[in-house]
Each structure stands twice: as C-alpha cells, then as structure tokens.
Amino acid sequence: MSDTEVSPRALKVSRGTSDKVFRGFVLAGASFSVAVLGLICAFLLFRGFEIFKDFGFSFFTSSRWEAAADDGSSPAHYGVAAMLVGSIVVATIAVVLAVPFAMSVALYLEYYAPQKLKRLLVSLLDLVASIPSVIWGIWGYTILMPHAMGWSKTLNSWLGWIPLFKVPVPIFERSPFIAGTLLAMMILPIITAVTREVYSQAPRDQIDAAYGLGSTKWGAIKTVVLPFGKSGLVGGTMLGLGRALGETIAVYLVLNLVFKVNFHILASVGGNVASMIASRFGEAGPYELKALMAAGLVLFLLTLTVNFMASAIVNRSKKAA
C-alpha cells in the first residue's frame, strides 16, 4: 500500500457580478443589524461620559441620586449603587422562585402530560410569554399585591428574626419580594421554553435503557434527562435573569422607588436601574439625563454580559445534543 493520501481537490469558486453584489448587500445588512449593539454602547457612553468623568467610581458605590438644589447650595450627585443592588436582589428573587417551577413545567410537558394536552399547553405557554409587561404590571398591582402582602406578613411573622425577612417599618406594600414574585411569573415562560427544548432532546435510547433496567420514570429522568439538560437549564435561567434585570414597567408599578441599599426584601424599599430610568426620565434636566444615559449603559453592559454567557451555554448544550 502506498502512503499517498488522496484528498479532494480544492474547488475554486468564481462568482458572477450579480452574486458578488448580492453577497455584499446581505453582508452589509447583517453587519448593520449587529452594529446596532455597538452603536448603543457608543452613544450611551458618549452621552453619559461626563457623568463617569465627574463622579468616577463613586457612580457605582454611592446610592445618592440628587439633582442640584435650585439655589446652588448643594451640587448634583448621582450614584447607582442602590439601584444596581435593587436590580440584582429583585432578579435573584425572581430566578429563585421561577426555576423550580420552570423545571417542573418543562418535565411535566415533556414526560408527564397526556399527548393531546401537551400541544395545547405548549401554545398556552407561548401565549403567556407574549403577554405585555404593562399588563403583568397592572395585574400585579391590583391582584397579586394584596395576596403577596399577606404572604409577606406570614413570612415576616415566622421568619422575621432572619435579617433578610426583617421589616424596619411595618409596610408590606410594593416590596422587592412582590416585584420578584411578579418577575418570576414573567420570566417563567422563557426559562421553561429553553429547558423544555433541551429536555426533549434527551437521548431516547438511554431513557428506554433505564426503563429496561427496571428504573421508574423518575429514575430515568434523574439519571438521564436532568444531567443531560443541566446546561440547558442553566442557560435558560441566565436568559431569564437577563430579562428580569432589564424589566421596566412591571417593576415600576409594584416596587417603591427609594434610593437606598436595601436587603430586607419584605420592606417597601427598593428599585431597579430600568424602572429608575423610566421614572426619572420625565422630569430630568440635561445633566440628570446624562446620568440616566450612564445608568442605561451600566444596565446594558450588565444584561449583555448575562446574555452572552446564556447564549454561549445554550449553544453548547444544543451542540452536545
């Protein structure tokens, strides 16, 4: 046998003018769309640069958000620490509440629901995913909040000795807990959608093998489906986290905006960057507007990071399937 390896000849593609133009045009269009991400970053930085220059690092560590006094007695001061903390607190509550339910919905739809019901429920899930956030907000404010205040009181009376559930002033309205609960309901469809897709790709032969070895349904799910879908679950959760961090109107309606770092999740003190921007925007002067742009940039970079990680994880889990 000879050592000569036979490899295919490299094909030389020569394209006509029309194709070159077409490909160039499509590339330009696609690049333009993607460039929007860069443009967002550039413009917000451009508008908010003065704020970063004026306040430096204290923009991230201070939680004071005050316009300059009219008589000039005190200068303006802007810092997003409280809002950043608030965003993360609310989003964390949302994710913690949503993930177990999202998992059980995904498992139910893939492995427990009757086939006929499944199609209906999947469409229902898609419908719920498209409910506008302002409607979640109005529902959360009028229907959920009275209930959630009751839960808050119960939580507080039993677990009030834990600092997390302590309430300095006994007002339970518009707390991070309520906002987090509402957000959990809002992000559940997206977490479920991603998780369910990955769960549905779990190798059928391995599941059958588990059954063949005498495993129960839960045994098969625990040993095959859950390990297989782990990165899908993580990716979906990160996507949900990204959504929760950037949610504006619903949070605006059910969370009391106070510029103070607060970890007592049942107290009526909180805020997040997005809803702060929405609520200050109307009455902001030129300088405060710049501060809002800077806060928007911070929010943008935060959610972008979370989303980059999410899509990297989801893509990897899809490739593994």
């Binding site: 993607v34 967002i40 950037g246 929405a278 928007g296 929010l299 943008f300 959610t303």
Partner: peptide, 12 residues
C-alpha cells in the same frame, strides 16, 4: 450577536 441582541432591555 443577534442572540445577544434579543436580551437588550427595552428601556435601553
């Protein structure tokens, strides 16, 4: 990037 773009918060 289009995937990441779907996560741009609406307020941004």
């Amino acid at each position: 990037l289009t995937q990441a773009m779907s996560g741009v918060p609406s307020i941004v």
